[in-house]
Amino acid sequence: MQTALRTSLPEIEPAGRANFVPHARVAREERPVHVSGLPLGIRGLRKSFGDNEVLRGIDLHIPAGQFVAIVGKSGCGKSTLLRLVAGLEKIDAGSISLGDEVQAEDIRVMFQEPRLLPWARVLSNVEVGLGRDRASDDAHARAEEALTEVGLADKRDQWPSVLSGGQKQRVALARALVSRPRVLAFDEPLGALDALTRISMQRLLERVWRDQGFTAILVTHDVSEAVALADRVLVIEEGRIAHDVLVNAARPRARGSVELTGLEGSILSHLLSADDRT
């Protein structure tokens, strides 16, 4: 079903970008236009909840501005890894370094649920993302700019309850983007959306990543989403990184291309064979 959808939809580049990106590009140049992201170094990371050891020693280096997808079966520890990077859980052992001078506003998380304040209008929900700059004079202007970026400028004075699921998630994205984060962590942000909305959200994520050049970490259970968006796919099994796969396909990526489908198939077979062994 998803494959059929993907191939039937024409790939449309966002307007205004066609001249911006050179046509003949090689994999190495698939970086964002300017890199604002932070490099991420993880060493010997361990985390347990009670007797259950969720992460059993993760070593990982993510260069600044890379788009990394983390896939794995549910309960493999992929969300825990993301929550540790975002500082939402305490580390048991090991370290996570995000370079020097990292501030709270530099790291943002987007969840599966939009988590908008129902009693705040769309614009003030976006302003929440400014962190300590919430009270500054240009808060309104910055929030409006972020809303425009996700294409919802006309919804600024609406209550969240009147928005569709995809629109709410776009507001949540605007809220995450408004502080110009240098690391953006996505915890299954598209998991609750329908197939068509998912695809347009994937394009939006890719576009803002290329525009802003943050380091992106996407946790997903959807392997085709991972290979469509990421530079690199990490497969986590039983609390360890089992596979580290580079995706060198050129951007914008033609979803359903032989290259991506082949990669998706091999990652899926890894995941499934792990399933057979247990």
Partner: peptide, 8 residues
Amino acid sequence: EMGRIYGM
């Protein structure tokens, strides 16, 4: 949790 993440 969202409020805490966004530094409230």
